[in-house]
Design a protein around this nucleic acid. Sequence first.
DNA 1: ATTGACAGTTCAAAAATAGAACTTTAGGCC
DNA 2: GGCCTAAAGTTCTATTTTTGAACTGTCAAT
Lengths: 170, 170
Amino acid sequence: MKWDTLEEEPCSLARTVAVIGDRWSLLVLRECFLRKRRFEAFQSSLGITRHLLAERLKKLVRFGVLRRIPYQESPKRYEYILTQKGLDLYPIIMSIVHWGNIHMVDSRGRPMLHQHKACGKMFDPVMVCSECGEPLTAKAVHVHPGPGARQTSPAHAMADGAKAKAKTGA
Amino acid sequence: MKWDTLEEEPCSLARTVAVIGDRWSLLVLRECFLRKRRFEAFQSSLGITRHLLAERLKKLVRFGVLRRIPYQESPKRYEYILTQKGLDLYPIIMSIVHWGNIHMVDSRGRPMLHQHKACGKMFDPVMVCSECGEPLTAKAVHVHPGPGARQTSPAHAMADGAKAKAKTGA
DNA sequence: ATTGACAGTTCAAAAATAGAACTTTAGGCC
DNA sequence: GGCCTAAAGTTCTATTTTTGAACTGTCAAT
């Protein structure tokens, strides 16, 4: 399975992994949420190679997660800012940070704390059910195929022709 | 920056990315949450190469996300099941799936639907503040350095000696 | 005796990433 | 004018990962 087949899988997780499932994209997005906007800022705070940073920024722009905005003419210079689609990644980022806070901290404690402006308190994110508001656990959830579920065999087993047809037929 | 320096960064996001931030780990974990447990099951439903699957399973076991349990003797056969640490990844998985549901579906609609056993309804996950219960957005959150924050320069700029010392000194 | 299932391991070829130098446009300093 | 710096890339080679395919070892069934 290649990167591009990943985004065509009939699975919302696989499609999202096509966007953020690599070494760097989530780190770049962390910087975005910390208000970094420029190439040099990303590069120096992450230590990513310039080559790969350029690649990743292009990818995130292509997926509509970042927007490239010129902030000066000649020489043309751009900043990268989160679109709404990008801002919507916030729960993913926060749940990742939270898991790290619980399971990956050393004896010094958390590298970062979060304060909710609305209530003023330091908080942790909690994932709840949109319908009843109760916290969610894996065991309390039933999974059902939805309208976009795959019909037959796994996508990675399909011939190219069949795959193209499956896409067109949407 | 290499994979192993990633998990030593003073950042809960970076450390978690060291565990799940690659092409395959999240897909393998998806299968785990769908009750798959065996090598062949992972391999055939993901289309991952056997070599890399073995690698990834080893990594997830090493990080304590999966446990390797023998289910038969001679020939020794193992299954891989989620530990509590692994089960705690559920909010990450669900927020990733949710983002894909909102931003990456085609006209056919969602590949999967989720039903909350507790209330019986189809739901979406919502991330709320642990203190006041209100939904969270990036703009409503203030970030503060915590006790485990880095003191001086970025980790990727440290010499190896300094880095080793920083770890020992924890 | 042969086949098939399972859980890997091994190896060469292809792709991605790292690391470093180089490019382009412009402003500031002497 | 000549030299330095800054920003945002691009280009190049070397290294590391990943792929794809075949192979191994143990047992059960035919």
